[in-house]
Amino acid sequence: MNNSIEIYNLKKSFNTVKALDNLMLTVEQGGFYGLIGPDGAGKTTLMRIITALLLPDSGSIMVGGLNPVKDYKELRLKLGYMPGRFSLYQDLTVEENLSFFAKVFDTSIEENYHLIAPVYSQIEPFKNRRAGKLSGGMKQKLALSCALIHKPEILILDEPTTGVDAVSRRDFWEMLSQIRENGITILVSTPYMEEAVLCDKISLMFDGKIINSGTPTEITSKFKEKIFILKTLHLREILKIARQMPELKSVNSFGQNLHLVVRDNLVEITEIESFIKKSCDYDFKIEPYQAGIEDCFIDYLESVENV
């Protein structure tokens, strides 16, 4: 199978800061690839190099069979790009924005309507509204429509769901899965780890490097330690107590719950329960849990810190 994006040993520094450090990445044609990592991991820099907006310091890169350093002109026809910041004309209406990008790519809204229909149909009732007056979720849908209108081979989305409410975020990911059915390769970055499970392949990115790659299940199945979830109304108090238990490798809060990682499978639920009950009488409940991508990420970060 052909690869849409092939990157070897890519390096990029801004002054003394290493943004990308020997980065390797392969995205298969038609793939739905997620780049997961916190802010500052280098996701945006990587995407800007792929879209030929930045030049790499060294390393090789192929996008859609072209080299973004040299063939950026041809590459522009093949790429759809949605930057992290909302970058459309706020003083133009929804339809004017879309029609502008269609014409710039020498096509029309009608010609590729089928492609953007799952996205655009949701904002079409507001097509005469100025883009600046749209809600965050609708802005993202418009930006996606504009990035898609010229039927790109490869769609690059830089944190499309950042700053968008939870419902719109789920909608957005569903639309992405619909779009890929047209054979469009999608590379999407996000800091929200739980979104990543929808991709066929993901890479965890940190400090300019890819620390782990594979399908979401591959990545989570690499997590060998036993992990429990603790539910309680007294999160902070119990967090403090649990962290004192030597058999627990890490205790972290995830939303309203705590995730407890057991060192070398040393202890079971009952032993943790009795350890906590010795120090307080708050109510809590511990259950077995399947490690998520975020657990893998934190596990990696803690192993790096301990070295």
């Binding site: 907006l53 930057p83 459309l88 990008f101």
Partner: peptide, 13 residues
Amino acid sequence: EMGTMEILLVSPL
């Protein structure tokens, strides 16, 4: 400033 230049640069213009 609005970031639209980024999109224009990626377009065939």
